Simulated scan of single mutants.
Amino acid sequence: MTTVLLLIVSYLLGSIPAGLWIGKIFFKKNLHEFGSGNTGTTNTFRILGKKAGLVVFFFDLLKGTVAVLLPSLFHNTALPVLVFGLCAVLGHTFSIFDHFHGGKAVATSAGVLLGYNPLFLLLLVVVFVIMLYLFSMISLSSISAAIVALVGVAIFPAFSFILHHYDLIFTLIVLALATIIISRHASNISRIRKHVESVVPWGLNLSKQHKI
């Protein structure tokens, strides 16, 4: 029973649509009606500003981290902790508080990795920052980090680099998280191909997308 309750709590925690609620309460704006219509960190930055964006980013990040830590707090070992993290990501992506809409799972997935393997996350952050500098796109940086995560769980253990052994559960969860992130960026991938994806005012914008 405790395990089921913790899974539900993890999902509900992930479901909290911080960007949507902050926009409505403090800015009288529904993020679904502005920009990309997404309620995650990137659209919050664009529509509500840096302060609100940072609050949403850290909140969404911590949703994943707290979900991973919950089983340990209650001394529950019935399931791998990453399963609870995945529930939080599913909640974030398909929020029961937002008609099963949600964000693109990047920050919350990062939070899951922060709670389970911070060093692996650090590598992905480096990849994210490098890609952001080169191409100035949050979307492409997120997709690239997801791809590197997939490659990492497949290859790194063979060389004992960051991951020292193959972990089936970790591999499956990373596969699930990466699949969610990449699939949620389908429209961004289409815009990137057409060179009309939004970019941030930083970096080289090597693919010459149109700036916002």
Rank of each mutant, 00 (worst) to 15 (best):
A149T: 07
A176K: 05
S95F: 01
R193C: 08
K211W: 10
R191A: 13
V68R: 00
S36E: 09
T93N: 13
N76H: 02
C87L: 13
V174S: 09
C87M: 15
L124C: 12
G111D: 05
I173Q: 06
L73P: 06
F94T: 00
L61R: 00
W202Q: 06
F170P: 08
S142E: 10
L124S: 13
T44C: 06
S109C: 10
Y133G: 03
N30A: 09
K104E: 11
V66D: 00
S15L: 08
P80R: 07
K211D: 08
L172I: 10
F135L: 03
Y166M: 08
F170T: 07
T171K: 06
S207I: 12
H164I: 03
S109D: 12
A145V: 09
F97I: 05
L73G: 05
I25W: 13
S142M: 12
G152M: 07
L82K: 05
A149K: 04
G53Y: 06
L175R: 01
H165W: 03
S72W: 14
I147E: 07
F156N: 06
G115N: 09
S10Q: 13
I173W: 04
L206Q: 10
L150V: 10
V9C: 13
F156W: 14
R193P: 02
T42I: 06
L123M: 11
